[in-house]
Structures are given as structure tokens and as C-alpha cells.
Design a protein around this nucleic acid. Structure first.
Lengths: 188, 188
DNA sequence: GGTCTATGAGACAAATCTGTCTTATTCGAT
DNA sequence: ATCGAATAAGACAGATTTGTCTCATAGACC
């Protein structure tokens, strides 16, 4: 058994646990284990206590977010191209990431507070860059634009979850709604 | 003690319990009681079991939503006027209402499923009406526009919660972001 | 085949949560 | 001042959850 396979299995497990926790924040270790398709004993062997498990999942989500931001070229790629890649990349973990925001379980863990603040700042800088380049309107704070995008991606996740759109439509829908707005335009 | 005062106190209590549950979905009755500033005994006397308590809060939130929709003139008022009142009215309960969406606790209670489906449909109809009147762009489904607005209001709630905007700015911010979009326009 | 490792199943005590009760206190009304 | 209703505080048993342990099984590797 190779090391990379171990890692892959472990990451798959973390992913499944994250999904289980996202779907039901207060799930017991028994429910999490069932949803992740492992025994409760294995869950404890791998992650330790429930608190450790949650911390591991949170840390993993923050790492995922970092990778998605990196991969989208958020810091240097042309703004509108990065925007599309950002939406496409972050949409799958939208619900899980929202759990980070909504859950106060780890409010007293400075590491996670800092990690989330860093993600927020990075997205805020992206919109500030877009404004400086004249792409985004300058009369709303980059912070609000960042929050707004996050909410749209979350909404798109639920739209797909509820069966009203396909996953492949998400980038188009979010782009149209966020970038262009919902107003009908005589000019097209 | 008059009846109306009893009702007011009860409703205040429900409000505080809703806030406590919104801030921490998995809160124990002890935590909820502490957050609502009553004893755990009173909580049980008033609401019954924990499950009954959650059901009461959920029902109350759905009623609130109905009242806000009614008050905004969602079904008949001029679209853009209703839009502003909708945002302004629903913003305070945004986080609480999101709890309804995110929590599967009452998935097996048809009453709540129906109530939420009704709210969704009502908001969807609003956007369909706006499209029919030529106010909203017709190339995105009303369902997506409804979800999108919900996400924006949620984002605005967090923006205020985190101290990056004042409550009074919310209608303007949401209106600008949703209606007009974030793109800079040569035409202003 | 034999061995080693990881896992699932189940049991178990400790901790936590829930629902109920009793008692004392507070507050308003008379 | 006294009464009565509502509450807070605390105790309590039962249920649930958690963390740990043991044992049996399945699969990888020699």
C-alpha cells in the first residue's frame, strides 16, 4: 500500500465527514460514521475526539479554499477570468464552507479565526483589484462585494441541491446575477 | 396583567429563542435558556419538549415571513418598491430563516416543508411578475432570482453582524448588488 | 499458507442532555 | 401587608452521546 493511496483514502474520508457535518451540523459521531460509511471506532482512531474531528474538517476546508483561490488566479489573473474560475471552483464546497461561518464551535480557536479572516481578505483584495482596474463599480465596498459573492455561490449550491439547475449552469448563473444584475436592459 | 402584554412577552421570548438557535443550531436547552434569559424550567413549561420548542420557533419564523411578504406588497405593489420593502423587512430575520433551510431536523414534518415551499413559490412569483412587466431580465429563471436574493440578504446580514456596514445601509447595498450588478458601467 | 494491519461490531463506563419535580423567591394585584 | 401567579434554582432519573476497550474478520504482503 503506497503512501499516496493512504492519503487519498484519508482525504476522501475527510470529504465525506465534511459533507455529513454540512448536512447536519449537530450530527453525533454515530451519524457521522454512518454517513461517512465507516465505523465509529475508526472515526475515533483516525480523528481522535469529536472536537478534534471538527477541527480537522475545518482545517481541511480552509486548505481547500486556499487551493481554489490559488488555482483561480485570484491574485493576478485577469479579473473576469479569475471570477469564473473562482465560482466554478468554490461552488462544490459552498455549503461546507458556510458551516465554518455559521458555527461558533471554534470561535475560541484563533487559528481558524485567522484562517477565515485571511480568506475574506484575499477575496476582498480581489474585488479591490477589480475596482482599481475599472472592471467593478467603485461605489460599493470590496468587503460587501466579497460577502455578496459568497452568498450567491451558496444560493447556487442550494439551487442545484434542490434540483432547479444543473451543476454546470452554476458559473453562468452566478456570473450573470452578480456581474450584470437582474435588471432588464434595453441595450441587451 | 393584560392579555396583550402576555402575548408580547411570549413573542419576545420566541424571538430570543430563535436568535439563540440561529447563533448555535445545536444548542442544548440549558444554553438556549441562558441565551434567552429564562430558566430551563420555564423553557419547558412554555414550549414543552425541545422538539416542540424548535417546531414553535420554526412556525413563528414562517409566520414572520408571511407578514413581511404581505407588508411589502410582494403580490401587487410596483415591483421595485416591493423589492426595497422586501429587503428591508426580511433582513432582520435572515439568519434565523436560513436556519430553516439548513436544518434537516424537521424534514419529516410536512407542515413545515409545505410552508417553506409556499414562501419560495411566493418569492418566485414576485420575480416572474417582475419579468412579465419587463423590469427583470427574462433570461434567468425566477427560481434562481429568488434564491439569489435570499443569499444576498443573508450576506448583508453577516456584513452588518461583522461590523462592515450599518443596518440602514442594507437596502441600498442589496438593491445595488442584486438589481444593478457589480460591473462598472460607462453610462454610470 | 501464515502474518500483519486496518477495520467493523459490540460492550462498557463516564459525561452530557432531557424532561420533571420540589422548593424558595420575586413581582404584581388586592 | 397579604395573597397568588410565575419564575429561578436545584435535584433527580432516564436517555443519549462520547471515548475506550476487546474481539473477530477481511485483505495485503511475504
Amino acid at each position: 500500500m503506497e503512501v499516496s493511496e493512504i492519503d487519498e483514502e484519508r482525504e476522501d474520508l475527510v470529504q465525506r465527514v465534511a459533507n455529513a457535518l454540512s448536512a447536519n451540523h449537530g450530527a453525533s459521531t454515530g451519524e457521522i460514521a454512518a454517513a461517512a460509511d465507516v465505523s465509529r471506532a475508526t472515526l475515533h482512531r483516525v480523528f481522535g475526539s469529536r472536537e478534534d474531528l471538527v477541527a480537522t474538517v475545518y482545517g481541511w476546508l480552509l486548505e481547500q479554499c486556499d487551493r481554489i483561490f490559488d488555482g483561480s488566479g485570484i491574485d493576478q489573473a485577469p479579473v473576469l477570468e479569475a471570477f469564473d474560475r473562482l465560482v466554478e471552483g468554490s461552488y462544490p464546497i459552498a455549503q461546507s464552507y458556510w458551516m465554518l461561518i455559521a458555527k461558533p464551535e471554534l470561535d475560541n480557536v484563533p487559528e481558524f479565526q485567522q484562517g477565515m479572516a485571511d480568506q475574506d481578505s484575499r477575496l476582498e483584495k480581489f474585488f479591490a483589484r477589480g475596482q482599481a482596474e475599472g472592471v467593478f463599480r467603485p461605489d460599493m465596498s470590496p468587503r460587501w462585494l466579497a460577502y455578496s459573492l459568497g452568498g450567491q455561490i451558496m444560493s447556487a449550491w442550494y439551487l442545484v441541491e434542490d434540483g432547479y439547475a444543473g451543476a454546470l449552469e452554476v458559473p453562468r448563473l452566478v456570473r450573470a446575477a452578480v456581474i450584470e444584475g437582474v435588471l432588464a436592459r434595453p441595450g441587451g
